[in-house]
Amino acid sequence: MIVLVLILTLTWMALQSSFTLPDLIVGFIVSYGLVTLASRFLSTPFTNGGLGRSRIDNRNYVRLTLKWIAFIGFALWSILKANIDMARIVLFRRVDDIKPGIIAIPLDVKSDAGITVLANLITLTPGTVSLDVSTDRRTIYIHCIDVQDADAVRDDIKQNFERRVMELLP
């Protein structure tokens, strides 16, 4: 349902022809209210939110919405930090010191949506690109522009990215 709220929020902003923070907040509140009021008319895949219930529980919906907002904030923060790191590499490191590499990361996330969100988050973060997911969906292969310690990169992705994705899309 959060996707529906976000789509409605963006539609609200486009119809207002204004992309300011107050319009974003108003659009989000209006969209959230509409989706909450209309939730009993929506089909089960929208209302269960991956929680395994056919009926919507507003407390779980609010909790899930807050988790998605926190996840989006984390993703934006990670992208900002990676941009700063990439700028440091480009401006201050010699080409001989940069060690690109491909790393295999075992996956704990099982759902197609979770794997897709994880792969896209890795690709959106400057300096890393998701290359492939193994056919058994247990390993993701990524390319990093600078791999000083492959285990540290693997642990960082598992502890920060994959853990947060699994909270939303196991």
Score class of each variant (00 low, 15 high):
S39K: 13
T20V: 03
F19H: 07
D155V: 07
D146F: 02
I2Y: 14
P170C: 05
R154Q: 10
R63E: 13
I25P: 04
L169A: 10
G127W: 09
M166W: 04
I56H: 02
F19D: 07
S17I: 00
S31D: 11
N160D: 01
A150P: 01
G127M: 04
R63C: 04
F28D: 12
N58Y: 15
L6Q: 03
F92V: 04
D151C: 02
F19I: 06
G27Q: 07
T20Y: 08
G127V: 12
V129P: 02
R163L: 11
I72M: 13
L66V: 14
E167M: 11
S78I: 06
L168S: 04
Q16I: 08
Y32A: 14
N160E: 12
I2Q: 13
F28M: 04
V5F: 01
V147W: 00
G127T: 12
L121F: 06
F28I: 10
D132F: 02
A75C: 11
G33I: 01
G49F: 06
G114V: 06
S43P: 03
I122W: 03
V3Y: 14
T123Y: 07
D112I: 03
N58K: 12
A75H: 08
S31M: 11
A150Y: 05
I84P: 04
D146I: 06
L168V: 02
F46R: 07
I2D: 09
N58W: 14
I79S: 07
V90L: 10
D136L: 11
I2S: 12
L42W: 09
L4K: 01
A119V: 04
L37R: 06
F71H: 06
T128V: 05
R154E: 14
L121M: 12
V129D: 08
I98Q: 02
R88Q: 15
I7K: 03
T139I: 10
P45V: 10
S134A: 10
G73K: 03
P100M: 15
D151F: 04
R164T: 03
F161A: 07
P100F: 10
W68V: 02
S130V: 03
T44D: 14
I103G: 07
D136N: 14
L24G: 09
I89L: 15
L118R: 02
R55H: 15
V147M: 13
K81F: 13
F19Q: 06
A113Y: 06
P126Y: 10
N60S: 10
G33T: 05
S39W: 07
K81W: 13
L15R: 07
S54V: 15
L118Q: 12
D155N: 08
N58V: 15
V26T: 12
L10S: 04
